[in-house]
């Protein structure tokens, strides 16, 4: 019993310590936000890494997200709800929930891991120390461009994901479920609100912040050589993915009042 309490206490201390350090990093990013003007080149580089190079993967996953959502929704509502509401249900689910969350999870696996690995190897090879000895603040130089890129590019990727997933949904409806294109689109428009789209994009921005900040936090906290880089990379993906789902719930509670 004593051992269990001691173990729980240890994890509590480690957890509080990590939250404290993460908050300090967030504070340092906010304090150094003006670095984006000086670091335009690095911000553009990171935007290309987060956005452009993730696009093929987002296109591929979004097609299937739209397709499977439509198939499953049709399976669940058949015999209860007319198929003219298929576009309504699928469209809102994609815009509000599926496109932002699944895009963020894919980007967390690709970009969050990449950031943690890159900064982690910079840390263990003393490149971060070298920056500090050159009086260059690592948060300003390394973290701010990545966080800005995450904040901007996740909503843009989500817009692509929205469009492509809806395209996938439409394709399945027309080709395999016998729902005419006009019926699907009129159903989609029926209850669609532009505020739903903005809510989805706001969530995407928050997820972008989480992915980049967690990736940088894990990377800069790396110790212990190549093995440490591997650990940080894994942690970046796990922590970002779990945080995205928790943040998703919290934002839903705040934005979509029952």
């Amino acid at each position: 019993m004593g051992g269990l309490v001691s173990l729980l206490g240890h994890y509590l201390v480690v957890g509080v310590h990590a939250v404290g350090r993460f908050t300090l990093l967030l504070g340092a990013v906010l304090a150094n936000w003006t670095a984006i003007f000086k670091s335009r080149g690095r911000v553009a580089e990171q935007m290309a890494f987060v956005g452009v190079t993730s696009l093929p993967l987002i296109i591929l996953t979004s097609i299937f997200v739209g397709a499977v959502t439509t198939w499953q929704t049709a399976y669940q509502i058949k015999n209860y709800v007319p198929m003219r509401y298929l576009g309504t249900a699928v469209g809102r689910a994609i815009v509000i929930e599926l496109a932002p969350v699944l895009t963020a999870l894919v980007v967390a696996g690709r970009v969050g891991a990449g950031m943690a690995a890159e900064l982690g190897s910079m840390k263990v090879t003393e490149q971060v120390d070298a920056l500090e000895t050159m009086a260059i603040n690592p948060v300003r130089f390394l973290v701010v461009p990545r966080v800005v890129a995450g904040l901007i590019m996740l909503p843009i990727l989500t817009i692509f994901a929205d469009l492509i997933a809806i395209g996938g949904a439409l394709g399945v409806s027309v080709m395999f479920l016998g729902v005419p294109q006009e019926t699907f689109i009129s159903g989609f428009k029926l209850f669609f609100k532009i505020s739903d789209l903005f809510a989805g994009l706001l969530k995407a921005s928050i997820f972008g912040l989480i992915i980049s900040l967690v990736g940088c936090y894990q990377g800069l906290g790396t110790t212990g050589g190549a093995e440490g880089v591997g650990r940080s990379t894994t942690r970046a993906v796990v922590v970002a993915s779990v945080s995205i789902l928790i943040a998703d719930y919290l934002v839903a509670v705040l934005l979509f009042r029952q």
């Binding site: 003393e126 490149q127 070298a130 500090e132 000895t133 050159m134 009086a135």
Partner: peptide, 19 residues
Amino acid sequence: WQQARTQFGMLFQNAALFD
């Protein structure tokens, strides 16, 4: 420290070049 470090240069054991 940021100010003080401008008077320092450091050569690291494994060079620590930005790759």
